[in-house]
Simulated assay, not measured.
Amino acid sequence: MTLPTPLDDLLKLAAETGARLAPLATGTDAGRDNGHESYRVLRESGLLALLVPQEAGGAGLGFGDYWRVLAELARHNGAAALGFNMHHVVMGALADAGGTRLPPAAETFRAWMLDEVVNGRKLFASATSEAGRGAKLRGMRTRYRLSDDGTHYILSGKKSFVSLAGVADYFVVAAAADGAEDTGEVSHFVVAADDPGVGFGAVQHMSAMYGTSTAPMTLDEVPVPRSRLYLGVEGMSLFKVVREPHWMIAGYTGAYLGIAEALFQHTVDHVTASAARADSPVVQQELGKMAARLWAARALVHEAGDLVTARRGSLEANAMVHAAKYVVGEAGPRLAQDALRLCGSAAVSPGHPLERLIREVQFAHVMPAKPQDCLEYLGKSAVGVNLYDARAFTW
C-alpha cells in the first residue's frame, strides 16, 4: 500500500493499526503467544516506510512527527511500538541523509535498504547492546575484519537484549575493527537473520515487554558482503551518535509517552465508571495532578522532536531530546503510583490493562540513554562542555 503523507492521515492510520494491535497485547504479555502477529500487522500497514523519503515511496516523516505516530501506536500496544521503534532506529540515519548526495557506495547502500523496506516489506532491527556494557559503543567487544579475498567482512561476537529476534529480516550490528586498541571507531553492518554463523538464544521472559521478542545473539565468523557496510563508511558510528544522538538515545521516548497516555486514560475510564468516585473532589484533584504531569511531558516531547526536525544536530536539539527522555522516564512511574492509589485492585489484577501498563511504564529508564546519562549531558551543556567531542562521554 502507498502511505499517505499528511500527518493527520498517518495518525489515523496509526490509530487503525493500533486498534488491531490492542487485542494482542494481553496474550503476548502473558506469554500465551510470541507476539509475532503484531509485527505481521505492522508490516501490512505499510508503516515500516514512515521515514523513507517520499520520492522513494515512503511518507518522509520528520523526527518530531514520527514521535507522534509512535506514541499513537504505543497507546494501543506498548511492546509492539517498542519493536516498531527498533526498526526505525536503524532507518533514522538513512532518513537524516535524505536529499543529500552521498558517495557512490553509500548511495547504492541507501537505495538497496530503502527498496527492501518499501517493496520488500522487510523489517530491520538494531544489535548493539553487549552484556555488562549496555548500548555503549566505546569498548565494543564484537569485532570485524576483512576477508582474505577482500570481498566480505567477517563478524564475531555476542550481543545481548536484541529485540525482534525471530521476527526481523535484518539486524544492524555494531562492531569494532579487529585488533584495534581504540575501539571508539565503531562501524555498523547489516546482517541477515539467516546469514551463516548467526544464532539466537531463547527469547527472554521479562517482567514487561515480552512482545519485543528479545534474545541474545551470537555471530560466529559471519560473512557480510562489503555492500552491507552501513552507508559504506567504516569507523563513523560513534561520531554520528555524538553529533546527532536523537535516534540512539531518544527513539524510545515517543513510545513511553504513548504508554503513559494509555495509563492515564485507563485510570480515567476506571474512575468514571463510578459516579461517586468521579464526583469526588479528592479524586478529581488526583486526576488533575496526573493530567498536569502528562501534559508537561507531552509538551517537552513535542517541542524536542520538532526541534530535531528543524535543527537536527544543534546543541539545543541534542540537549532537549535528553531532557525529554529523562522527563518521560520520571513521569511514567509517578503516573503509575497515582493509578495504583486511585484504582486499587484493578491496577494489580493480572490481565487487566492497567496492571500491564503499570509494569510497562516503569522501564523507560532501562532504555538508553539512562537517567544519569541524560542528566550528565544536560549538566555538561549547562557548564559549557564541548558536546561535539566524543572524549566528553563514555559512549
Rank of each mutant, 00 (worst) to 15 (best):
G258I: 02
M236H: 15
Y256T: 05
V224N: 03
S274I: 11
G235R: 09
A275L: 13
V241W: 05
V191A: 02
H246T: 07
F200Y: 14
H302V: 13
P245N: 03
L219V: 14
V190N: 01
L294V: 03
K240N: 13
L231N: 04
A304C: 06
V190D: 00
V268F: 02
L231V: 02
G199N: 11
G197H: 05
T309K: 01
Y252G: 14
R298D: 06
L219R: 05
A215C: 06
D195P: 02
Y230C: 06
Q285C: 10
V271E: 02
K289E: 13
H270I: 11
T253D: 04
A299K: 08
L263Q: 08
F200H: 11
L231R: 01
T253C: 10
D194N: 11
M209R: 00
D194S: 11
L294F: 03
K240E: 13
T218W: 15
D279K: 14
M206S: 09
V241M: 10
Y252I: 11
V308Q: 00
G201R: 08
A193T: 09
H266K: 14
R243H: 11
T212S: 01
E303V: 09
G197F: 07
I259F: 10
F264C: 06
A260G: 14
H266W: 13
M206Q: 10
M209H: 12
E234R: 12
G313F: 05
